[in-house]
């Protein structure tokens, strides 16, 4: 699988994702700078975490209008796999590739702690190495992860089974329906707030995030 990682000015978790991807694919992913427009040859595009453009406007709003996002949109429209983590999830909602928005955490504070995620379905390219209903641990580190959408959108997400992961037990940021991650209707675009890429090595406290990357590589491999 050939993966590309988009780097906006202010992106800061691109190396974390690169490490996780390299661990499962054996090859270093391509770093795609924000003003590039050619993503040919990629099987997966990751929008990693960070503070794109400082997030001085709404989180992800400026990044969503970068030149590279035209290419990402076209890639997704053709059925390409796109994974947005944290700021990447925010960019995906700002770009209209996923519905809803990420508001300030309910406690109005940045929260960096482990959370527990429940796998809502496992028949997707990203969750196929988890079991449905399985609960795994992932670090979270964000100030704006409070998922919000109008009732109709939430009903649709629930009705069509597009909720990817839900916070188990404590809902740390006030997200609607405890949503931590959602899919596009074709299940190929995933946005989630926590960072499975930071839990792929026993030395760092666990490998709970590894199945996401292993499953992805298996499902997406051309």
């Amino acid at each position: 699988m050939r993966a590309g990682i988009v780097v906006f000015p202010g992106t800061n978790r691109e190396r974390d994702v690169a490490i996780a991807l390299k661990q499962v694919t054996g090859q270093a992913p391509r770093m795609v700078f924000h003003h590039e427009t050619d993503v040919a040859g990629l099987d997966l595009i990751v929008l990693p975490g960070g503070f794109s453009h400082g997030d001085y406007l709404r989180c992800g709003a400026m990044a969503a209008r970068s030149p590279v996002m035209g290419a990402v949109r076209a890639f997704a429209a053709k059925g390409g796999h796109v994974l947005g983590i944290c700021n990447g999830f925010q960019v995906l909602t700002e770009a209209g590739l996923l519905p809803g928005a990420l508001l300030r955490n309910a406690a109005l504070r940045f929260l960096s702690q482990d959370c527990k995620l429940r796998v809502e379905r496992s028949d997707t390219p990203y969750a196929c190495h988890y079991r449905k209903g399985e609960v795994f641990r992932a670090p979270m580190a964000h100030g704006d992860g409070n998922y919000f959408a109008d009732d109709a959108t939430l009903d649709r997400l629930e009705g069509e089974g597009l909720v990817a992961f839900r916070y188990e037990g404590h809902n740390p940021n006030g997200s609607a329906h405890a949503i931590a991650g959602i899919y596009s209707p074709n299940l190929r675009v995933l946005g989630l707030m926590p960072h499975p890429e930071d839990l792929v090595d026993p030395l760092m406290g666990g490998t709970d995030g590894l199945p996401l990357f292993e499953g992805m590589v298996e499902a997406i491999a051309p």
Partner: peptide, 19 residues
């Protein structure tokens, strides 16, 4: 001090063995 350090991103970089 969890209230304090829970506001600091301690895992970014993917290399933090002891938080």
């Amino acid at each position: 001090r969890a209230w304090v350090w829970n506001q600091y991103d301690s895992t970014i970089g993917g290399q933090t063995i002891r938080r």
